[in-house]
Design a protein around this nucleic acid. Structure first.
Lengths: 139, 139
DNA sequence: CTCTGTGCAAACGATTTGCATGATG
DNA sequence: CATCATGCAAATCGTTTGCACAGAG
């Protein structure tokens, strides 16, 4: 069932372990980015009693390999999602911390980035756009 | 010198204390949002040996009063800036964590927000847009 | 004088690190 | 069987809380 992950790991010269396969399956089944404590819980729920340290290290390794993406969202927790989901933005509920994907046209953000490079001398590698508010459950 | 802060505190029915005046002066002198550990250090540097707990509480109180704004930027640290700086966006250096203000036209972000409300049923109260990369010092 | 602000120590929660053991390729 | 992955305990670091004392209005 999780066999679809094997090539991803192999391509990245990462060893094929049960924990990594479960992690990828969890991210695959999610409709939005997940925080690590949550991922650890789901891991245990799925019958894989992985240690949190391992989860942190595996996600970091898979991020280095480009398989997962670290989402810089709100304070205090880091979220992860599958890179294959592609670039998009997020809506974050201020009440329950739920994070949901938002797909937008990239309007003139790219142009703005180019301008930053020219005018301020930064090297801009990516951007993130988040909307904050209350989700349907919390309104 | 910090007397300019007094009316702000009074208007918010917050007591006029040395720590609060120093905090406002520090934020006033900064060209971008500051993280609390940094603010505490600057506080001590300015001769006000305020306890970090007090700094956390004062900034929270001033945020409640609308005087300062809590910036949701990267992970693990919360940043603050003066509300009077107005709405803008940020550039964050991935190397040194330096945060700098970015002024952009609000292009169609407002329109996008309205769409979110209509299409997804969220209540959106604000957004944040950040650009990540390397600052001039770190390139 | 009363209520709010402050300091200190301890608690918390996410994340990281060191080290010994286990499994993969 | 060499190398990489894992588990466990302890350390870090930003942040929060409880409680007693001090200062502003």
């Amino acid at each position: 069932m999780n066999d679809c992950c094997r090539p991803k790991l192999a391509n990245a010269s990462l060893r094929d372990t049960e924990t990594r396969r479960v992690l990828l399956a969890i991210l695959h089944d999610s409709t939005g980015p997940l925080a690590i404590p949550d991922i650890v819980a789901r891991c245990h729920g799925a019958g894989r009693k992985a240690n949190k340290t391992t989860v942190y290290r595996d996600l970091a390794a898979m991020e280095r390999a480009g398989i997962v993406y670290r989402v810089i969202v709100s304070d205090r927790k880091q979220y992860f999602e599958l890179t294959e989901r592609g670039h998009h933005h997020h809506f974050i509920c201020l009440e329950c911390d739920h994070v949901e994907d938002i797909l937008l046209d990239e309007f003139d953000l790219a142009k703005q980035e180019a301008q930053l490079v020219k005018q301020r001398g930064f090297s801009v590698s990516r951007h993130s756009l988040e909307f904050f508010g209350l989700c349907k459950m919390c309104i």
